[in-house]
Amino acid sequence: MSNFELSDSQSYVPEKSAILPSSPADEFIVQFWGVRGLIPTPDTSTNRYGGNTACVEIYVGGKRLIFDGGTGLRILGKTWQELQQPIQAHLFFTNCQSNRIQGFPFFAPAFIVENCFHIYGTAASNGASIKQCLYDQMLQPHFPYPLQVMQSELQFYNLTPDSDVKLDDVIITTALINQTQRSVGYRVSWQDYSVAYVTDLHQNAEQVEQERILEFIKGADLLIANATYTPPTSHNHDSADLLWQAAVNAALNAGVQRLAISHHHPDDHDDFLDRVQVDVKSAFSQAVLAHEGLVLTVSK
């Protein structure tokens, strides 16, 4: 590992299977456990796409990586409990907003002494480290138990944008994606393959910022991006193209091979997202709207 600082040490979801530890080390697999933005959305109209907030698991080069710890992290944790063996994994947070960290207190494997988790994030807009943000949300009166009750080994790392994390032959590169939210994106590279996780795109980015993002995701085999949206009070389905156009434009301009759009708005029900899927694929045939349980294999 290099270029980062080591810090002081409920919605209905269909049954899903975890990526098995026996998966060959020469595989590159992406699995979605939470695809909702802003808040969890438990409702019969969101069953197909899912109502849990952001969480993506990547198994690459024999390493287990997790990106964001929304409520989907709880579901992932339940499947990992069934593995019945010590687990080592790396958790990367894009920012410290509640929809990215709210599943962490319910991540059951973190309470098991044999497990080990490396946790990465950048400083929040108020300067708080990722460790401080996770610690604060587990304090009374927000949560009945402090972070210290987690018996697994937790190692925290303070990242800076434009730095690399090296896990043997797997390299995770960071970039600042949204200055206002202090959000970072990640690019996972292994052999000749790469996946870019860039989930804080916004419609009004300045030209310099857009060019930096395009360079960061250029030529990726898979881009995971958000559907940009307006605040909940002004969400308007009549302008649905605005929700996904930024992600599609980025994918086309950067020459990525495939696009998965996630972080769906809480008001976007299944039937609406089905219609959006048709529009998105007409603009970029290799695009898909992510749903909970979706598994993508990265290959040329």
Rank of each mutant, 00 (worst) to 15 (best):
I112N: 05
V113E: 12
V113G: 03
V113A: 13
E114V: 06
C116H: 11
C116S: 08
H118K: 05
H118G: 01
I119A: 03
T122K: 10
T122W: 10
A123D: 06
A124H: 07
A124L: 03
A124S: 15
G127F: 10
G127P: 11
G127N: 07
A128T: 12
A128N: 13
A128C: 08
A128G: 10
S129W: 04
I130N: 07
I130V: 13
Q132S: 14
Q132V: 08
L134S: 05
Y135W: 12
Y135V: 04
Y135A: 07
D136N: 14
Q137M: 15
M138I: 06
M138L: 05
L139C: 12
Q140C: 03
Q140P: 12
Q140H: 08
P141Q: 11
P141I: 13
H142V: 14
H142E: 12
H142P: 00
F143Y: 14
Y145D: 01
Y145L: 14
P146D: 06
P146Q: 08
L147H: 05
Q148C: 05
Q148I: 13
Q148N: 10
V149P: 00
V149C: 05
M150K: 11
Q151K: 14
Q151T: 04
S152E: 03
E153C: 05
L154M: 06
L154R: 02
Q155L: 15
Q155G: 02
N158D: 12
L159C: 07
L159W: 11
T160M: 03
P161A: 09
P161S: 03
D162N: 15
D162C: 09
D162S: 11
D162V: 11
D162E: 14
S163L: 10
S163Y: 01
S163E: 13
S163N: 10
S163W: 01
D164P: 09
V165I: 15
V165Y: 00
K166I: 15
L167Y: 07
D169W: 00
I171H: 01
I171G: 00
I172M: 02
I172R: 02
T173P: 00
A175G: 01
A175C: 05
L176T: 09
L176F: 04
I177S: 00
I177K: 05
N178W: 06
N178M: 03
Q179A: 14
T180V: 12
T180I: 12
R182E: 04
S183M: 05
S183E: 06
S183Q: 07
S183P: 04
V184E: 02
V184F: 01
V184H: 02
G185H: 04
